[in-house]
Design a protein around this nucleic acid. Sequence first.
DNA 1: CCTAAATCTACACTCAACGTCAGGTTTAGG
DNA 2: CCTAAACCTGACGTTGAGTGTAGATTTAGG
Lengths: 125, 125
Amino acid sequence: MQIGELSDRAGVSHRTIHYYERLGLVQPAEREGAGYRYYDETALRRLEKIAALKRLGLSLDEIAAVIDLYFEDASGIRGKVKVLEILEAQLTKANAQLHELATFKHDLENNIARMRTLITEAKRK
Amino acid sequence: MQIGELSDRAGVSHRTIHYYERLGLVQPAEREGAGYRYYDETALRRLEKIAALKRLGLSLDEIAAVIDLYFEDASGIRGKVKVLEILEAQLTKANAQLHELATFKHDLENNIARMRTLITEAKRK
DNA sequence: CCTAAATCTACACTCAACGTCAGGTTTAGG
DNA sequence: CCTAAACCTGACGTTGAGTGTAGATTTAGG
């Protein structure tokens, strides 16, 4: 698959893929002859994973630090202790975020109920 | 309280507070005489709320759209239907995010366990 | 009263994460 | 064989969220 199809399927622009490539986030499986990039399915899965991690608020740099965990053979991971530290830091962050998100959701639901009441009252008047 | 104390207590720079003011996120309680900004405790609470919403991934624009819900008298909120739409969209987003975050946390825990095993093995060898 | 610390405005700069544009090459289909 | 569509690189532009700096003013403490 070429970059056009990949970008369509992943829902990102080809320039974004180029950019991610420079950051080491995705690499084409092949680059023969004229220099066209050819990708396999794992590239798509990587882009989807990147999108998911972005939604959680990770920067592209942070993503670069962990993305290989999802795709590389476990035994091939270098600097395991370092990676472990990153993961544990992220876990702590994730827990805090879960807590905040739950609170936020609760507040939202309260506010929505409040808004509904106000709107109904305003209409009745 | 002046901007220096506020920025210290909120853990943001005074430049950031100026910036937030331009976006309508915080306003000084008073601006008498020489133009110095004087804040009350609610300003601090607003800054803390802003930080919390940022941690959830809201942009400053999105925050501007809802921050008043937390501080303004409910009956004073203009454009209630609009606000309701924003809130409901955010609730949907929050639910999706909760789900993703839970998955992410689960993956993290698995990966941490995996790293631990690999490190232990490497040491024993 | 005087000076150092705090504050003011305004403009410029940074950084991440892209998008746009220009000019050139390559490939697939009629 | 030819041309439109897809691709390439490189340079520059943009947006969001600030940070830095300069020059002027103000205020508080000795």
